[in-house]
Structures are given as structure tokens and as C-alpha cells.
Design a protein around this nucleic acid. Structure first.
Length: 203
DNA sequence: ATATCGATTATCT
DNA sequence: GATAATCGATATG
């Protein structure tokens, strides 16, 4: 990570098909600013959820109070609570008024690793323990202290936001595409994107 | 190593 | 009342 050349993504980055956004987000940075410093992870795994023709998307059944952010302006956080235990973070895609999003499934911890491990209750005794910090949507949210109350609807490409998506010039060599994880509807579609060979992806 | 299961609650039928 | 874009623990090979 080249710290001197970190730049925020623009809202325009997200005015595209979620499949394009999901693929393009690989290698980008997810940043949480805290009073104690920055938490930074490199995005290594995403899933696209299409507004239309995607039974697995939360937007499939229409706009509700829960999923309204998916219809809102691009580059905003859609956070939902699942299985009575976990939060999951998405970013809204497509122009204001059109539903669509990308789920963040895993990041590779880069900075603030001690803080993130502590938030997860993970003790770092070996290199392998690093992989348990943020390899999975629920784990990643816990590591970055992402919750619905705090972050749902937040602009992720605003310089004043404490949760941001940025880039540092990192180039991803090869991308793997597989079916999405944990869904029952439209489970066969290849809409999960991950950096080939990266060991910080989920399961 | 993989398989199965319980936790726990917002949301929708 | 059923389900869910998950995780961690436990059981078994």
C-alpha cells in the first residue's frame, strides 16, 4: 500500500452494472477512520446483486424501509442484519432511482491490524490468525465496527465520511468468478468475484 | 479434512 | 410463523 497516493473513489465509479463494479472493486481499499487511527483493508472478495432479474437480491421484492439505500444514489452503504448475529456491508450501484449493489465479502488487513483483531476477539499468534480477522462478510463488519445504526446510508466516497472506499494504484493480476455463497435463489449464477491466489478470501 | 448444527432477531408472509 | 447474502463450535473420517 502506497500511503502517499491514496485517493477516494468517485460516485461515478458506482454508476455501472454491479457486475462491473464488483470486479473493479477488487484491489481497492476499505477504510475506517477512528479516533485512534485508520483501519485499512484491501478488498479481495465481492458479490454482485442485480436490481432486476436477480431473485437473490434484497431489491428483488421491491423497495422497503430496509433496502431503500439500494435505490438511492451510488456509492452509499447498505448495511443489513442477518441470522440474528451479523452485519453485512454493501455499496449501492447504478444511478439514483435504480436498484443494485455489491456485497463486500472479505478484505485483507493492511493497517490497524491490532485494532481489527481486538474487535474480532482474535489473538494473533501466527500468520494464519490474520486470515480469521476479515475473511467473510460478518467477520469483516465486526473487524471494521460496521453496524446498521452507525453506517447504513453513509456516503462511502465523501471526504468527510469515516467509512470510505479508496484506491492506491494496486493492480489485480487475475480475477476468479464463482457462484455466490449462502443463497438459495439464483444460486447458480457466477456473480462472486475474488482475487485469484489471495489467501484472505472467505472459506 | 469436511459435515452438520445452534444461535438469535429483523423482516416479510 | 418462516426465513435469512453467517459464524463458530462440535462431531466424525
Amino acid at each position: 500500500m502506497n500511503r502517499s497516493s491514496i485517493t477516494l473513489l468517485t460516485a461515478g465509479f458506482f454508476v455501472r452494472d454491479p457486475r462491473k463494479v464488483a470486479r473493479s472493486l477488487l484491489g481497492k481499499l476499505l477504510i475506517r477512520k477512528t479516533a485512534r487511527g485508520m483501519l485499512v483493508g484491501r478488498i479481495v472478495e465481492t458479490e454482485a446483486y442485480l436490481g432486476a432479474d436477480d431473485a437473490a437480491a434484497h431489491s428483488a421484492a421491491g423497495k422497503t424501509a430496509r433496502n431503500a439505500v439500494l435505490w438511492g444514489p451510488p456509492g452509499h452503504a447498505y448495511v443489513y442484519f442477518i441470522y440474528g448475529n451479523h452485519y453485512c456491508l454493501n455499496v449501492s450501484c447504478l444511478p439514483d432511482g435504480a436498484p443494485g449493489g455489491v456485497l463486500f465479502r472479505a478484505v485483507e488487513p493492511l493497517e490497524g491490524i491490532e485494532e481489527m483483531a481486538a474487535a474480532r476477539g482474535v489473538e494473533i499468534r501466527s500468520a494464519g490468525d490474520l486470515k480469521r480477522i476479515s475473511s467473510g462478510p460478518g467477520r469483516m463488519c465486526e473487524a471494521l465496527a460496521v453496524t446498521r445504526d452507525r453506517d447504513n446510508g453513509k456516503n462511502l466516497v465523501s471526504s468527510t465520511s469515516d467509512l470510505q472506499i479508496a484506491e492506491d494504484g494496486c493492480r489485480v493480476k487475475r480475477v476468479l468468478v464463482t457462484p455466490r455463497v449462502g443463497i438459495t435463489k439464483s444460486a447458480d449464477q457466477p456473480l462472486r468475484y475474488l482475487i485469484a491466489g489471495n489467501s484472505f478470501v472467505s472459506r
